[in-house]
Amino acid sequence: MTRYALPLLVALALGACQGGASDPQPAQAPAAQATPPAADKERDADGTATVPELVVQTVDGQRYDLAERRGRWVVVNFWATWCAPCLKEMPELSALDAMREHVEVIGLAYEEIEPETMQAFLRERPVVYPVAIVDVYDPPADFATPRGLPMTYLIAPDGRVVKRYAGPVTAEDLEKAIAAAGGPAHGA
Rank of each mutant, 00 (worst) to 15 (best):
W79D: 03
I113K: 10
T145N: 06
N77Q: 09
A171N: 04
H186V: 10
E92P: 14
E116S: 14
A84G: 13
A27D: 02
A141P: 04
G159V: 07
M1N: 15
Y4W: 08
A67V: 11
G148W: 09
P157D: 09
V55S: 04
E114Q: 15
G19H: 13
D40C: 04
M1S: 13
P85L: 11
K41C: 05
S94Y: 09
P150V: 07
P140T: 05
E92W: 01
N77A: 07
D173C: 04
R164D: 02
W82M: 11
A16F: 14
L108H: 08
R72D: 03
R123E: 14
G148K: 04
M118D: 07
Q119M: 12
E111L: 00
V10M: 15
V134K: 00
R3G: 04
A49S: 14
M151D: 15
G61W: 11
P91A: 01
C86D: 00
I113C: 09
G20Y: 10
K88W: 10
L6P: 14
F121M: 02
L66F: 07
V76F: 08
I113F: 06
Q25N: 12
D138L: 11
N77I: 10
G71P: 05
P24S: 11
R43G: 10
R70C: 02
A38W: 12
A80Q: 11
R125A: 03
K41E: 09
V76N: 03
G148A: 15
H102Y: 12
K88E: 15
V134G: 00
P26F: 06
P184F: 12
M118P: 03
